[in-house]
Write a protein that binds this DNA or RNA. Sequence first.
DNA 1: TCTGGGGTCCTAGGACCC
DNA 2: TCTGGGGTCCTAGGACCC
Length: 419
Amino acid sequence: MLGIIDCNNFFASCERCFDPSLLGKPIVVYSNNDGCVIARSEEAKALGIRMGMPAFELKDIVKEHPVRMFSSNYTLYGDMSRRIKHMINQFSPRVEDYSIDESFIDLSGLDLINLFDYVKNMRDKITQDSGIPVSIGVASTKTLAKIANRFSKKQFRAVGVFIIDTESTRIEALKATKVEDIWMVGRRISSKLNAKGIFTAFDLSNVSPSWARTNFSVVLEKTVYELQGRLCIPLEEKSKNKQHIASQKSFGSLQTELEPIAEALANYTARVAEKLRQQQSVAGGIEIWLGTNNFSKTDKQYFPKISTRCDIPTDFTPYLIKLAMEALKSIYKTGFKYKRVGIMLIDIRGKCDGTLNMFHSVNRDKQDKLIYQLDRINMINGRDTLKSAQQGFSSSWKMKQNHLSRKYTTKLSDIIQIS
DNA sequence: TCTGGGGTCCTAGGACCC
DNA sequence: TCTGGGGTCCTAGGACCC
């Protein structure tokens, strides 16, 4: 058996955790730029606030009801996530870190008679000790465990645990689940399934896996097997290194000049390079893109993209920034109102198996020592204490965060930065 | 006026090899 | 008039996840 532990309304719960006056109140957490809703408390859901709802559509609801709004505070959520994962590790030797608010756990070897007690205790303890309510679904496959988790939230909220451990429970759960609510079945696939007369998870569990593969994909084939109780998607304990590392953000206001866009891009490049070094990799190239506001009906649209290669695979921020600046200049054109810029590191590989260029004489040791000291200084003193001049000091491009909460759980230097 | 950001895997088609 | 068969690698786009 395996389980999935999922934090309820995670971002909203994190905000509430540090402000008891928010108990029982509708809370929403906004995306970057305070653009749209990405998390809601139960009370907010009850008011009809939908996931992804643009902020301006909330205006009327907010007038009528005291909705508390928050800009997303990933420093806080990331740290809470780290704490909860630490607790989860006390309950199972094998854990897969699946997302910021979800973990799969191996529950094999537990006597079935005690399974419920064990999981229930785990759920209560984590909820109590972290201050974030969690729900646990348990079954023989990941796909079924996800369905069990939905049940634990919907039908068995007070308990917070649901286990699919008998054939009759499995069938009952599948019959009560629509295809669009199955993990790995999105909007496109579910509407195609509906057109073929398949509406519930139970319907889908009765098709032949090879039919699913022929008519859809190997992904849906695995889903069918997993609904039948046959494990196809194993637990992955070791988190793999990223193959792409990207950063893109919408500007706080539309930009027309090159300079602020270049400054923003230099900052995003510094971020992705930092992440690259954290996983001890180097990148063989970069991809840069630029975009106008695609929601606008009147603005001229322009979405250029370009990729370039490094002379030798590298993790050296100044070099990557230089490359990014050259790429940006080659796609930037005047006469457009730009909404976002982004960078992706591509062709990522381990630092040690990076290829050398026999015609290139860069002193890598020197670069490594320099960037190591930069990372060290920034870790101790706070992000961007030491940075590239190209990253600049202007703020015209920076995102809107008008409802940001405190970084309650992390270092002083971070807290000082927001004030 | 105002609509997020960061990922993965799979597949089809093109370009190339012998 | 009639022109093979078996591969690999790369890329772009689609679908999905949180």
